[in-house]
Nucleic acid binder design. Structure first.
Lengths: 264, 264
DNA sequence: ACGGGTGTTCCGAATACTGGAACGGATCGG
DNA sequence: CCGATCCGTTCCAGTATTCGGAACACCCGT
């Protein structure tokens, strides 16, 4: 096991982060033995990582059970990540305006391999409205291929990268209209790229419609995408595209412009 | 340098996390040399950590500048942290209701040593209202001693722990009414504990008023606090306490009850 | 009292880590 | 055009750091 990953690699760091990553949702409290079993390390080794993480504030030990939970220090990391995006800062006020003007929920997401990751979210201020939730919040992940945000982001990938990505995607059915054929998806992405607008009509889940537009950076790449999400009982597809897409696209262009993008 | 921290400590993990932590707000793009200088490591050693973090998706290399930025993987960590709190899930709907009822911004925070960390935030839906922002969002930190949330959390600390914490706090002036004497703060905390309500009248910043109440867990400790924040031009102090504190405290009690707290 | 679970500590062995040196590229100013 | 100087990256031998088995103290249900 001399150098499987190349010599420029820190085993300890990888293992320590593996410990940290074991604390996903649904497993908030973990013990040393349990963690060791998960990762495949002895209890003593695991304990050293855990102790280190605890000393640094990334983990906290529960005084009763002696098990560990994530510490507040971990929040810092996550939010440095979000805030290090000038993107988000620039976009936030535009998104709020868009949400207020339309009365619908607005989201912004980036692409991480096959997933999209929500980085900003403005819920509709319209009280009493049927909420589309799915337990979505900043940081949530969804598969790219069946969301309007994801399709925009995929569409603007450089050709080779897009091909590689598409090859990895597993096109499982998620909603009534999920695209399950690779050729159909490829064609759809071409269309999205041409129009600068992606539409998802119940591709992710029943009752869920959305349209999305790209945020373009200085070099013309899509660094993020924004969408408008509505419940199908509230807005028809025609209405969504005809009435709301201009506003959405205008907002996207404004944000792009603020980020230094110049249309040629 | 044999064992400064005790033998149960992983140097590599600490250093790797130090690399990650260097990416705070305002420094989104860092190079290997720069990082090495910050932490006090050679470029080669730093590079190994950086390469490891990049391979795992915690960092991304900018193709142009060859510098590194935080990767989406870091978001996962932060959000596992937040979501691993049943606290937050239980509280969210109550906070939304409270915000809708009152029309003001509602926050929830926990204590991390001398700071409070926001873990949930419901902005006032009342359009056009003067926004109190200070660039606050989930994950933001503020000093505990000059915020209503912080004073509640400090007030409910076990006596010894409270004493230790107070000893560490630096009481620098932040707003017109910041408490800058340790004895005054101690007396104030006693009052807060007795009343179950903390008030901050321009202690953190000019024009900022808030009241906060504790969320109590099964063992009677304050696991979090919630507040109502208003602009001083909008609501008088009397109004805030007389009209809004009952609603705030009721909401706090409801959340506490949901978490298993039983008043005796 | 027992067996099996836990978190924790200790230790010698060994391996994964360290940092100086060197390479290749980019960017600068002369 | 050319050194000078920064950068990220790779290589390497020496050793500090990490490894995991064993043992301890503790808690539990039997």
């Amino acid at each position: 096991m001399t150098d499987a990953e190349g010599s420029a690699y820190s085993q300890s760091l990888e293992r320590g982060l593996a410990v940290l990553s074991s604390f996903r949702s649904g497993r908030p409290l973990l013990g040393v033995s349990e963690l060791g079993r998960d990762i495949g390390l002895s209890r003593s080794t695991t304990h050293r990582y855990v102790a280190t993480l605890a000393a640094l504030g990334y983990l906290q030990q529960d005084t009763e059970t002696k098990k560990y939970r994530l510490g507040p220090r971990v929040l810092d990391l996550g939010f440095s990540a979000i805030n290090s995006m000038e993107l988000r800062e620039v976009a936030a006020p535009h998104l709020r305006t868009l949400s207020d003007e339309t009365g619908y929920t607005v989201n912004m997401a980036i692409l991480d391999r096959l997933d999209i990751v929500y980085v900003e979210r403005c819920r509709s201020s319209r009280a009493g409205q049927r909420e589309i939730d799915l337990n979505l919040h900043v940081g949530s992940r969804l598969p790219a291929y069946c969301t309007s945000l994801g399709k925009v982001l995929l569409a603007y990938l450089p050709p080779e990268e897009q091909a590689e990505t598409l090859a990895e995607i597993e096109l499982s059915r998620r909603g009534p209209n999920t695209i399950t054929s690779r050729t159909a998806l490829s064609a759809e992405l071409k269309r999205v790229r041409a129009e600068g607008l992606a539409i998802s009509n119940e591709e992710l889940a029943y009752g869920l419609r959305s349209i999305a537009a790209p945020i373009l950076s200085r070099d013309g790449a899509a660094s993020a995408a924004i969408n408008l999400a509505v419940h199908s009982s509230m807005v028809s597809m025609n209405d969504l595209v005809a009435r709301l897409s201009p506003t959405l696209q205008r907002t996207a262009s404004e944000i792009s412009a603020h980020l230094g993008y110049r249309a040629q």
